[in-house]
Amino acid sequence: MNVTLKVWRQKNSKSKGHFETYKLNDLNPDMSFLEMLDVLNEQLIHEDKIPVEFDSDCREGICGQCGLTINGRPNGHHHHTTTCQMHMRHFEDGDTILVEPLRASAFTVIKDLKVDRSAMDRIMQAGGFVSVHTGSAPDANSLPIGKMDAEDAFDSAACIGCGTCIATCKNSSAALFTSAKITQLATLPQGEIEREKRVVAMVDAMDAEGFGSCTNTEACEMECPQEISVTNIARMNFEYNRALLLGKK
């Protein structure tokens, strides 16, 4: 199959970007989108041009490092997928495909399609943990946790930190990402002790990074590769309001 690509090229975080058009011929429909970009880069190298920079690592949908805006939507026109799991067979022969980085003002473009998502790490640093140091843990079975609670906690914990939720939100809100961790730890007894401190610190960090408010459009849930539910956001709100009412702010 043949496609025409319009790719966002930006030399570094300070320079202004623009679109470049490239034509690719004889692609195999079984290729993943990223493998298609590999082919493009091989072509560019042979033409003595600078290849397109983009992030990817595991290429099996779990590490969260890849992520591109394809035709105006993060990770392309399928719901619940990462860019690496988007295959060319889902495009038509002769398509023109627009490729942009994931957009949010908290995500600075490093080069071309690579963005800096370290703001998400800083939210985690504020409170996305149980303060337990190595060696101090009691026996794992000393703390019974209901099967359903464990499964709910898992569903929240499955977040891969890819930033799709943020990029797909019209407000660039990090609510789904932040709330998934808060909910995981609020669901489990291990998180109980630091419950109020955690939610307040993480929400403050989220705001300090310049992410927007959640206005409950629920677009994040529709795109999340791990299908993290927006009920996590509700839980974060509950936890936060509870902390406020308890005067733990």
Partner: peptide, 22 residues
């Protein structure tokens, strides 16, 4: 054994039985 204790204390959601044990 210590690794499992450590992970559980961190909040790693391992699969559980209905009775709440791992």
């Amino acid at each position: 054994a210590n690794v499992i204790d450590q992970a559980v204390a961190q909040g790693v959601p391992f699969a559980r039985e209905y009775g709440g044990v791992l």
